[in-house]
Amino acid sequence: MSDRSSFFPLVRLTCVEIPRQPAVLLLTTTLIVFIGALPFLITHNLGEPGKLVRDSSLAMMFLGSLLLAVPSACNAVSSEIRRGTAGAILSKPISRMRFLIAKYLGVSAIMLVFSGMATLTILISDRAAARAFHPGWNFLIPLFLGVGLSYVLAALINFATGRPFASTAFWCLAAVLILVFLWTLAFPGGKEVRHEQHGDHTHEVEYAGQVVPVRWEIIPACAALTCAAFMIQALALLFALRLGVVPTLSACTGFFLLGLMSDYLLARRAADLIWARVLYHVMPNWQHFWLADALTAGGSVPWAYVGHAAGYALFWTLGILLLAMGLFDRMEVR
């Protein structure tokens, strides 16, 4: 009974602790600012409005998940073991399995918030990138003001109450981003742009009173990436049990890169070489979660596919977590 009752406080503690690391706030802010800056950083659209912005921001989100997963997992597990706080917790009536699951859920909750923030920013940024050479300032200004506002708000709260700045700013950023997104929905401004063919040339024609629509199909693409992020999270947790930050980051980056290139590196050799076949099946294949191309080609991503991807991620995550549990169960904790 006490085992169960101590589970949620542990999840909550992890959720509270991770955003307190300034690096988490900095990473989140960079991601948002960078995705927001893409519409005016990427000036060409190669005839497909928003494609480059969408591709780059989804890639940033993917990479951001990896960069967030490693320090979070290390903070939640390896630092706790090194500091001896894990030992203190495990001396209480809580099993190792629950400890690890609680840590995973806590870290995943933060990852979910992170992915949510990235998704909202991509939705806003995509609308701002609808026209080549003319970033939609009516979307970008509220976004940047929102980022600034959440920092000011966090500073004020820190001044008045002494709450930690980093975590307050992280949560303020999450709340303000939702408000900014709702604002851009309510006050879209701008004009719709259509491409019309006149003889040899394509013209951009504006239609007053109409707006750049939200590309809701981005949400399933981001959801698939979030599933991948949960998988990376489990991997990071597994490595963090035994390794420090550098080796964990190296190992996760290795899995990340190999998983991304497994179609190129392994699939074509799988028919001839047994090791390539084994490795191809053992490596998680991140290509399943990369839907940016489908978004460009078909314009939409069916939720059923996302469901399949989620199932794949769940299968892997459970496997990795089981492995982690087996490892942790035998581990000596100071």
Binding site: F133, H134, V193, G199, H201
Partner: peptide
Amino acid sequence: SRLESGWLPPGQM
């Protein structure tokens, strides 16, 4: 020459 052939530059360029 493009303008003469009836081409319109995009948007507010």
